[in-house]
Simulated scan of single mutants.
Amino acid sequence: MVYTVIFEVDIKNNQILFFHTGSLSVKLKAGVLYDYEDFLEQFIIDNVYEEEKIYLYQNFNIEALRSASVNKRENITCDFRLRPEGNREYRWFTMSLMLPHGAGGAVGAILDIHEKKIHELEMQHQASHDAMTNLLNRQAFERAVFSYFMQGEKTGAYCLMDVDNFKLVNDTRGHAYGDIVLMKIAKILTENTPKRTIIARYGGDEFCMFFPGIDRAEQLEPVLIKILENVRKEEFDGMQLSVSVGVSFYPKHYTEEKNSIGKYADVALYKAKESGKDSYCFYSEEMGEF
Rank of each mutant, 00 (worst) to 15 (best):
M1G: 11
Y3S: 02
T4G: 01
I6C: 04
E8I: 08
V9E: 00
N14M: 03
Q15A: 12
F18D: 02
L24S: 04
S25T: 14
S25E: 06
S25K: 01
V26I: 11
K27M: 10
L28M: 11
V32S: 00
Y34K: 02
L40P: 03
E41W: 01
E50R: 13
E51F: 11
K53F: 03
K53R: 15
N59L: 11
E63D: 12
S69D: 07
N71W: 00
K72H: 12
T77K: 14
T77W: 00
D79W: 02
F80V: 09
F80G: 07
L82E: 09
Y90P: 08
F93A: 09
P100E: 07
G102V: 10
A103L: 14
A106G: 15
A109C: 10
I113Q: 08
I113C: 09
K117L: 07
I118V: 15
I118H: 04
E122D: 13
E122R: 13
A127P: 06
A127L: 14
S128V: 10
D130N: 13
L135E: 06
L135A: 07
L135Y: 06
N137F: 07
F141G: 01
R143I: 09
V145F: 09
V145P: 04
S147A: 14
S147R: 13
S147N: 14
F149W: 12
F149I: 13
M150A: 13
G152M: 00
K154F: 01
C159W: 03
M161Q: 08
D164R: 06
D164M: 05
N165R: 12
F166M: 05
N170K: 04
G178Q: 06
I180H: 06
V181N: 05
K184H: 09
I185W: 06
I188Y: 04
E191A: 14
K195A: 13
K195I: 10
T197E: 02
I199S: 03
E206S: 04
E206T: 04
F207V: 08
C208G: 01
M209F: 05
P212F: 04
P212W: 05
R216Q: 14
R216S: 11
E218F: 11
Q219R: 09
K226Y: 00
K233P: 00
E234A: 15
E234V: 03
D237F: 08
Q240D: 10
S242H: 06
S244Y: 09
V245S: 00
V245L: 15
S248I: 09
E257N: 11
N259W: 01
S260T: 11
I261R: 02
I261N: 02
I261E: 01
I261S: 02
G262K: 07
K263V: 00
Y264V: 03
A265C: 07
V267Q: 04
L269D: 00
Y270W: 08
K271N: 06
A272I: 08
E274Q: 15
S275G: 08
K277L: 01
S279L: 07
F282E: 04
Y283F: 15
S284A: 08
S284K: 11
E286F: 03
E289D: 12
